[in-house]
Design a protein around this nucleic acid. Structure first.
Lengths: 342, 342
DNA sequence: ATGCACTGAGAAAAGCTTTTCCCTCCGTCA
DNA sequence: TGACGGAGGGAAAAGCTTTTCTCAGTGCAT
């Protein structure tokens, strides 16, 4: 096999190594080399091992473009999002990547910022690159992306955004999250629960409010505002003033629609001289770690398990790409209560 | 040309359209079709237009895999990061994508979470997919990713992370940012400036502290801690207690090392009954909008222009991929002061 | 009428891998 | 000894596009 020698020299030529180089270096034909690497075809065990060893030695890695051209699988998927700040997209993306990296699939991330034209450009770029599938995600479960993905030549999975009829959609079970939060507050011995949350126009807001009332009682107050810290702050003022006016007892537990609202709530309580959690227990929503874990006291909050959501979306789009059939419909995933000190 | 008719029927076959379909539909050969689309070769204007029109009509888009196989350009780059929460990566990524989308380049995002093995896997996956280049980024300017990118067969550009010798590296000019902040505080008539910042082991921390002292005076206090809100809160307590002890006047301006510290600082001041900005002016760092803009009052802070950093990194890696020469070295970009109400 | 230059367009190769089909060689059985 | 089957390995096509040649035809000048 002194073909090996000459090959080792010619390997010094320019460019990346091809399977030709490998074949020459191992002293076999291209087809044998290919089959040896992929564990297909018939050949002597010794030959197969030699090819594999040589491949490792010279550092040969097959060109995924050529592979994709033939197999019509690019081992690439697109993740489309309009969540500019990535608070929801990043954990989700981490889950997607985690699920797919073992399968050799890489992820194109495209942030399209609610711009249909930009979305169109990105989708076309992804299709040109023959993505095996697309995962659409956003910042709101009851809104869809500003672009129609329903007639694409590749499978589409929706995660944390509204999907089209007949599509596969993943989202968190916000009712479950709200139930966890409310029940935990009750379990802490709290009886006067209130829910400070975002705009009533959000589907999740209604879903959570409903679950909250189911646990806390139909009369438990729910106040709607926006998603900001400022609103949380104001809401406390309003609730406490009202209670004082009517001569009622103030709340002893607040379930907040997100961690930012909780942030404002905690601030307002502190300013009124109330201790968290001694006087009032607080539960947030989102488990936005960088905020929730750093609050004083660290915030007990509901985690939507976006990473797991991403994992499942990733596996599903892969399954669809491989032609396996997947039952369409909305799948909801349970939330998890992260108990800290509030 | 009733070839067109029959082609329009056969177009109904399975799979994506190829240039063969286009050629048939337009009644020309494949080569002519290709040249018509790319504006190359010689042919009658009428022919060229007809091909282009038919291409639009049937919705033909060339297969980027086949194109890439031939041209050895995949129009794809990889963005490698270990910034899990994406606070720095996302704005940067947005800039990269913005710069490259016009050139038809898509971006693989790979979050490697400080895991060398995972990093290796992702880099190899990207190389297999023939990325035209890689941008490495992180969460800290003076640390490098847990993986060696110096001998890759594709160009690498570093942005907001430490690069290797001879590489092209982009980072923000933190000294400039600190100068902007300090000078603005002085311009507000403040005289007793302090700087509450992160760990002294960070290069940026030293750079900023130095610039701060150059403006505020060599005796202006700089206190080092960690990057948390809690530290900002404590630091205020410490500074005010010290001042009271020594019978000195307390600071009237605080330049914070990041927006989270500023958050803690503002809280602590409020608890001490001090008004921002009436009694004390505050400037943060990072312009982490979702926090800075929502604070009460909204925070004046330094923006590192990460989006612009990303844009430049994107254009640079593209230039390198196209074989243009780029002077190696570290390029720093100016910061921008975002004046809000603190 | 012949040759030349140029225009318009097609044939074929290249780029890298996988897969199908085929060939050769060897051993075995009748 | 001849036929047959199986094992090991190679040749070639396919997948889609771009690019380089090559070729046929036309108009013009000689």
């Amino acid at each position: 096999m002194d073909l090996g020698e000459s090959a080792r020299i010619s390997q010094e030529k320019k460019g990346r190594l091809t399977i030709h180089d490998l074949a020459a270096a191992a002293g076999v034909s291209i087809s044998t080399a290919s089959k040896a690497l992929n564990g297909t075809g018939r050949m002597g065990a010794e030959t197969r091992e030699r090819v594999q060893r040589v491949a490792r030695e010279i550092g040969f890695r097959p060109n995924a473009l050529a592979k994709g051209l033939l197999s019509k699988r690019s081992f690439t998927i697109g993740l489309l999002t309009n969540d500019t700040y990535g608070r929801f997209t990043l954990p989700l993306m981490a889950g997607v990547a985690e699920a797919l990296v073992d399968h050799g699939v890489s992820v194109f991330l495209c942030a399209i910022e609610d711009d249909p034209a930009l979305g169109q450009v990105h989708v076309e770029a992804m299709l040109d690159k023959q993505v095996d599938g697309i995962i659409a995600t956003g910042k709101r479960v009851d809104r869809s992306l500003p672009i129609d993905l329903s007639n694409l030549p590749v499978p589409v999975v929706y995660a944390f955004t509204e999907g089209t009829r007949g599509s596969v959609t993943f989202r968190s079970d916000d009712g479950h999250g709200a139930r966890l939060a409310s029940e935990w507050l009750i379990a802490q011995g709290r009886r006067r629960l209130v829910h400070i949350t975002g705009p009533e126009s959000f589907f999740s807001v209604c879903e959570r409010a409903e679950a909250f009332r189911a646990v806390a009682g139909g009369q438990a107050p729910v106040v709607y505002g926006d998603w900001s810290e400022g609103w949380g702050y104001q809401a406390v003022a309003r609730l406490w003033d009202e209670a004082a006016e009517k001569g009622q007892e103030a709340p002893d537990a607040i379930f907040c629609g997100n961690d930012q609202i909780a942030r404002g709530v905690v601030d307002a309580l502190r300013e009124r001289g109330l201790k968290v959690p001694t006087d009032v227990s607080i539960v947030g929503f989102d488990n936005w770690e960088i905020v929730a874990a750093q609050m004083r006291p660290p915030l007990t909050t509901v985690d939507m398990e976006l990473r797991e959501l991403g994992r499942q979306a990733g596996l599903t789009v892969l399954a669809l790409a491989e032609g396996r059939v997947v039952e369409p419909g909305v799948r909801t995933l349970p939330c998890r209560l992260v108990v800290r000190e509030s």
